[in-house]
């Protein structure tokens, strides 16, 4: 039996310029309330897989860097298991799957350390290409933006990925590819508008 919706989702409102107070209080100088900000570390010692660092910036429609954004990352472990209740079995216990980061208030740069994700199944059993889900909020963003980061060095997997296959304008696929920049390092810039606007998803 399906149960139909009877209530309506609460409407979104912008996170505003002071989102750090609630989501990263230690980062913005509100010390002593929480011992540590939520989502501080993607993994603990002993994590399995290839450790990588991702760096990026978020750019607005004028090409200016967005300095007040908050980004959350949610991804599979190195074997493609999701922390937080994968029906196929538990993920790497040393892997959280979640981090939360703020853009630097001066430079707009943001960065996180993780492991390269494994492949997560699509509902029909095919395997998706390695990816991380990113969720972006900031002043001026009325509804949090979902996107995905894939890896430019995973051509074969990317070519058969069911989500990337939905992008009719093939030139836009490149907006979702993190580019290698040195060993175990990637760059992933997000453009909110313009000719190279990042693909965002309605998930």
């Amino acid at each position: 039996m399906h149960r139909d919706p009877m209530l309506k989702e609460s409407p979104s409102q912008t996170a505003g310029p002071y989102v750090h107070i609630g989501c990263l209080p230690n980062l913005c100088g509100i010390d002593g309330v929480y011992p540590e900000d939520l989502g501080a570390r993607m993994y603990a010692d002993g994590v399995r897989g290839q450790k990588i660092t991702v760096r990026g910036r978020i750019l607005d429609g004028t090409g200016s860097v967005v300095r007040d954004a908050l980004v959350e990352v949610w991804q599979a472990d190195a074997e493609g298991r999701m922390p937080g209740g994968d029906p196929r079995g538990p993920a790497d216990p040393a892997f959280a799957g979640f981090v939360r980061r703020a853009a630097d208030p001066e430079t707009g740069d943001w960065t996180f350390d993780t492991v390269k994700p494994g492949r997560v199944p699509w509902p029909d059993g095919r395997l998706q290409a390695p990816h991380a889900t990113l969720w972006i909020v900031a002043r001026g963003i009325n509804l949090g933006l979902h996107t995905r980061m894939y890896f430019a060095d995973e051509d074969a997997a990317n070519d058969t990925d069911p989500v990337l296959a939905r992008i009719e304008h093939r030139g836009r696929v490149a907006t979702l590819l993190a580019q290698p920049e040195g060993p175990d390092a990637y760059r992933f810039d997000i453009r909110l508008q313009g000719p190279d606007e990042t693909v965002f998803f309605d998930v």
């Binding site: 607005d60 429609g61 965002f200």
Partner: peptide, 13 residues
Amino acid sequence: SVTRAPARAPISF
């Protein structure tokens, strides 16, 4: 929102 709103519709899956 004027400079931060994506201009293209999000892609659903």
